[in-house]
Write a protein that binds this DNA or RNA. Structure first.
Length: 760
DNA sequence: GGAGCTC
DNA sequence: GAGCTCCAACGCTCT
DNA sequence: AGAGCG
C-alpha cells in the first residue's frame, strides 16, 4: 500500500485510496481524487448498465499522457469482495463490478476507462444487447455521424428493435439495442450484420462495414466487432482517457439531434446532468426483444416505404412516451398495483407458469437497501390482471380503485433456499429486490442496490414557475389557484414528515400541524404551498410568513393555535418506493388526491379546465394569480421553464418599498426581505415581502434598482436622511416596527395604516 | 497502481 | 531499497 | 507466418 493511503468507507467496504492528489489529466488539471469522485457519484447509474458484465480496464496510472494498459484478469491481490467470472474454460477470470465500492476501488487503480462485454451474468455468453459502434474517419463532421446514427436508429426500429444512443466519448456514437439473452454470439452477430448491411446499402457513400482503412476512406465504419466473443466496448458513463476526461454519455434521441460535438459531457458536467434529467437509458432492459432473425413474425418489413411512413410519424413518437413493450411474449412480465381497498396496499404480481403469483405489500416497496417490507403471499391471479386498472365496485371483494403502479418485465437473478432475488425492468421502476420467506405465507421484500438518487434524502428543489402576462389557453393546459404562501416540499419516511422550503431549508419545526396521519403513504415526496387562510378562505401571506419566523417551541405552538396553517398539495414526486416524477401530471395528481386523508391539514389543490374563468375568479377574490400546467408534463426538479406558468393577477401595480425585515437566519448580515406596498385608491395596501435572505449589500443594490421604479421615491414617513436609499434601508429599528405592525394579522395596524394612508 | 522478481 | 516488468483479445485483412 | 487493426 502506498504510504499516503486514505481509508474511506463505501457501503460495507473499506477502501484505501492512494495518491489522491496525483494529476491524471494535466490539461484540466484533474487529480485522481476527482476521478474517484466522478465514479462515486455516477456509480449507481453506471452499475445499472455494467453490473454483471465482464470488465476490461484501461488503466492510466501515470495519467492520460503516460503509458496506458489494458487489464482483464482479476489480480490475486484484489480484495476478496471483487467478483469475477470466467467466460469459458481457458479464458481469463474477468472482474465484474456489482456494488459502488467495486467502482471506487477500480477508480483508485487509475482505471479511467471501463469497458464491458455485451453479455452479463447469469448468461455472460449470451449477449443482452447489440452495440453498433459508429466510427467516423478523420474530418467527418459530428453532425453527419449523428445523422447516420439517427438513420441507423430508424432502420433498427424497422426491424422491431428499440434503439438507444450514447456518445463514445471520442469521435463516434454507439447505438445499442437491448435483446433477450437467449442467443449465442454467432446468431447475434448474424442479426447485427443483417441490419448494418441494410443501412450500408442505403447509405453507400456514408457508411461501410469494411474494416480495412483503405476500403473505408471517407466513410463511417459500422464496427460490429464489439459484439464478438471476449470483446468489449466502452461502458455507458465511463470516462475516456483523453484531455478533459470526456464521458461515454447516454443521450435521448432528441438530445443527440441537437448535439454539435461530444464536448458537453465530461467528468465535471455529467454528474450534474444526471442529477438534472436522469438516465435516458434507465428503462432500457424493459425493451429487450428477440433478435429479428429468430422471430415468429418480423413485426415490420424494413422496406423503404415502411420506413418513410415511420419517419413521418416519428416526430410524434419520439417526443411522446415510449410505445408499448415489444416481444413481451418472450419474457416474464410483472405488475405492481396500488390498490386502495379498505386498507391501502400494493400488489406485486410476477408472471410464472401462465399465472400471476401475487403478494400483498401493506406498506409499499422498500426504498433503500436494508429496508424490509412485509409481503403476504395471496392467491394467484389470471394473466389479464397485468394491465387491469379501474375501480372495483362497492360490495365486491377488494372494492376500491386499483392503479397500475409499475409494469414491465422481471428476471430472477438468484435462487435461494428461502427465496429468490429478482430485478424489475420497466419505465417506472428499475431495481433489484430480494424476496425472503420467513414463515408460511409471510415474506420479506428487501431492496438490494442503492437507487440512482435518494429522493428521500434531504430536500428536492421544487419545479418553479415562469411568469407570463396572459393566460395560456388550450386543451393542453389545466389550471390551479396560485396559493400565496410558502412553497414546501414534504418528505415522508415511515411516519416522519420533514418540510423543506424552496431553498432547501428545513422548516419542519415551524409547522407542527403537518404530520403523517394526514397522508395515506409510507414513504413519499410531495409538493405544495403552506398557507394561512383568512376568515373568508383567502391566503394571508403576512400570517404565514409570521409562522415561518416564530422562534421557540412555545411561540410556535401559540402561533400555530392562533393562525393554523393548511397545505394545498399539488404534486407528488415519490410514492412508496418509486419516483413518479416521470409520470404524466394527471397521473401524479390522481395518486396525490388519493393519498390525502380528508379533514386534515393537507388539502388537494383542485384543478379546473377553464383557465379564463379561474383567472377571473382569482382576480375577484384577490388571489395572487393562477398557474397553468401543461397536461402530461413531467416533474423536473430544479426547473424546466415552459411546463409550468404562473400568471400574476394584476399587471399595473405600483409598488413602494416601505421597509425591510431583519433576516431570521444565523448570519447577522442578512436581511430578510423588502416590505412592499401597493398604491391603491385609499392609500397603501400591504403586498408582501420581496425576496429573502439578502445580505445588506445585496439588498442595497436591489433597493437602488427598485426605488426608481416606485412612484414616489420614498414615502414621507421615513425619517431624516432622505437622500441615501441605502442608509434609509439601514434604519433597522424603525423598519422592524413597520414590519411587525404590517404582519400582525396580515393587516396594517390601525395607527400605522392611518399614517401610511392619509397622510403621505 | 501494485506486486513480484532481480540485483 | 531501487529498478524493471507485467498487466487483453477477437477475427479478419494485408504483406 | 506474422503484423496490423480498433
Amino acid at each position: 500500500m502506498a504510504k499516503e493511503a486514505q481509508w474511506v468507507q463505501v457501503g460495507k467496504r473499506q477502501i484505501a485510496l492512494s495518491n489522491l492528489t496525483k494529476t491524471l489529466d494535466p490539461t484540466g488539471p484533474v487529480v485522481k481524487a476527482e476521478v474517484v469522485n466522478y465514479y462515486l457519484s455516477v456509480a449507481p447509474t453506471f452499475l445499472r448498465h455494467a453490473r454483471g458484465r465482464p470488465l476490461s480496464l484501461v488503466r492510466y496510472p501515470d495519467g492520460i499522457e503516460g503509458e496506458q494498459f489494458f487489464q482483464k484478469s482479476r489480480p490475486d491481490w484484489a480484495p476478496e469482495w471483487i467478483g469475477s467470472v470466467r467466460l469459458d474454460r481457458k479464458s481469463q477470470n474477468y472482474m465484474v463490478a456489482d456494488a459502488v465500492a467495486d467502482v471506487v476501488w477500480l477508480a483508485n487503480l487509475a482505471c479511467l476507462e471501463l469497458h464491458v462485454t455485451q453479455g452479463r451474468i447469469p448468461h455472460p455468453e449470451r449477449p443482452d444487447q447489440i452495440v453498433f459502434d459508429l466510427d467516423p474517419p478523420p474530418d467527418f463532421g459530428y453532425t453527419r455521424v449523428i445523422e447516420l446514427a439517427t438513420e441507423l436508429g430508424e432502420v433498427l426500429r424497422g426491424y422491431g428493435y428499440h434503439p438507444f444512443a450514447k456518445t463514445s466519448g471520442q469521435k463516434g456514437i454507439h447505438v445499442v439495442v437491448p435483446i433477450e439473452p437467449r442467443w449465442e454470439i454467432p446468431d447475434v452477430m448474424a442479426a447485427a450484420n443483417e441490419v448494418a448491411a441494410d443501412l450500408v446499402r442505403r447509405y453507400k457513400d456514408e457508411a461501410t462495414l469494411n474494416w480495412s482503412k483503405k476500403a473505408r476512406e471517407t466513410r463511417v465504419l459500422i464496427d460490429l466487432n464489439r459484439n464478438r466473443k471476449g470483446q468489449t466496448a466502452v461502458a455507458a458513463y465511463s470516462l475516456r482517457g483523453k484531455p478533459g476526461l470526456p464521458v461515454s454519455m447516454p443521450v435521448t434521441w432528441e438530445e443527440l439531434a441537437t448535439l454539435r460535438d461530444a464536448s458537453p459531457y465530461t467528468h465535471a458536467t455529467v454528474p450534474g446532468i444526471l442529477e438534472d434529467r436522469g438516465d435516458p437509458w434507465e428503462a432500457m432492459a424493459a425493451y429487450a426483444v428477440a433478435i429479428h432473425t429468430d422471430r415468429k413474425a418480423v413485426p415490420v418489413a424494413a422496406d423503404p416505404a415502411t420506413l418513410a411512413a415511420y419517419k413521418k410519424k416519428r416526430d410524434f413518437d419520439v417526443t411522446s412516451e415510449p410505445g408499448p413493450l415489444l416481444g413481451k411474449e418472450d419474457m416474464a412480465r410483472f405488475t405492481i398495483h396500488r390498490h386502495h381497498a379498505t386498507n391501502l396496499h400494493y400488489d406485486l404480481r410476477l408472471e410464472q407458469d401462465g399465472v400471476l403469483k401475487s403478494w400483498a405489500l401493506p406498506r409499499g416497496l422498500p426504498h433503500q437497501p436494508g429496508v424490509k417490507r412485509l409481503a403476504v403471499e395471496v392467491e394467484e391471479h389470471p394473466i389479464k390482471y397485468l394491465t387491469w386498472e379501474g375501480v372495483i365496485p362497492k360490495g365486491e371483494y377488494g372494492a376500491g380503485p386499483m392503479w397500475v403502479y409499475a409494469t414491465g418485465r422481471y428476471s430472477v437473478t438468484k435462487e435461494k433456499k428461502t427465496g429468490f432475488y429478482f430485478r424489475l425492468h420497466s419505465e417506472q421502476l428499475n431495481a433489484d429486490y430480494r424476496m425472503h420467506r420467513t414463515q408460511g405465507k409471510q415474506w420479506l421484500l428487501e431492496r438490494v442496490h442503492e437507487p440512482d438518487r435518494d429522493w428521500l434524502e434531504g430536500s428536492v428543489p421544487p419545479l418553479l414557475c415562469e411568469k407570463v402576462d396572459a393566460v395560456p389557453i388550450g386543451n393542453d393546459y389545466q389550471y390551479e389557484v396560485k396559493w400565496d404562501g410558502i412553497r414546501a416540499i414534504f418528505t415522508v419516511i415511515e411516519q416522519e414528515v420533514r418540510i423543506w422550503s424552496r431553498n432547501g431549508n428545513d422548516i419542519t419545526d415551524q409547522f407542527p400541524e403537518f404530520d403523517a396521519t394526514g397522508l395515506n403513504i409510507t414513504t413519499g415526496v410531495l409538493d405544495g404551498e403552506i398557507v394561512v387562510l383568512d376568515e373568508v378562505g383567502r391566503p394571508e401571506f403576512g400570517r404565514v410568513i409570521k409562522r415561518l419566523h416564530s422562534r421557540g417551541e412555545g411561540a410556535i405552538a401559540r402561533a400555530a393555535k392562533k393562525h393554523p396553517a393548511v397545505c394545498y398539495l399539488f404534486d407528488c414526486l415519490y410514492l412508496d418506493g418509486r419516483p413518479v416524477v416521470r409520470d404524466p401530471l394527471e397521473k401524479r395528481r390522481a395518486w396525490l388526491e388519493d393519498l390525502i386523508r380528508p379533514d386534515t391539514a393537507f388539502r388537494f389543490s383542485q384543478s379546473v379546465e377553464d383557465g379564463e374563468l379561474l383567472f377571473k375568479a382569482a382576480k375577484q377574490q384577490g388571489l395572487e394569480g393562477i398557474i397553468a400546467k401543461r397536461k402530461g408534463s413531467r416533474y423536473s426538479p430544479g426547473r424546466r421553464p415552459g411546463t409550468w406558468l404562473k400568471i400574476k393577477s394584476e399587471h399595473d401595480v405600483t409598488l413602494r418599498i416601505i421597509g425591510y425585515t431583519r433576516g431570521s437566519g444565523a448570519r447577522s448580515d442578512t436581511v430578510g426581505s423588502l416590505v412592499v406596498a401597493e398604491e391603491a385608491e385609499d392609500g397603501l395596501v400591504y403586498r408582501g415581502h420581496l425576496g429573502s435572505g439578502f445580505t445588506d449589500r445585496a439588498l442595497e443594490e436591489l433597493a437602488e434598482a427598485l426605488l426608481p421604479m416606485a412612484k414616489t421615491e420614498r414615502p414621507d414617513f421615513i425619517p431624516e436622511d432622505q437622500d441615501k436609499s441605502a442608509e434609509w434601508l439601514k434604519e433597522a429599528v424603525y423598519c422592524d416596527a413597520i414590519y411587525s405592525s404590517l404582519t400582525s394579522g396580515g393587516m396594517l395596524r390601525q395607527g400605522m395604516y392611518k399614517r401610511l394612508r392619509g397622510d403621505i
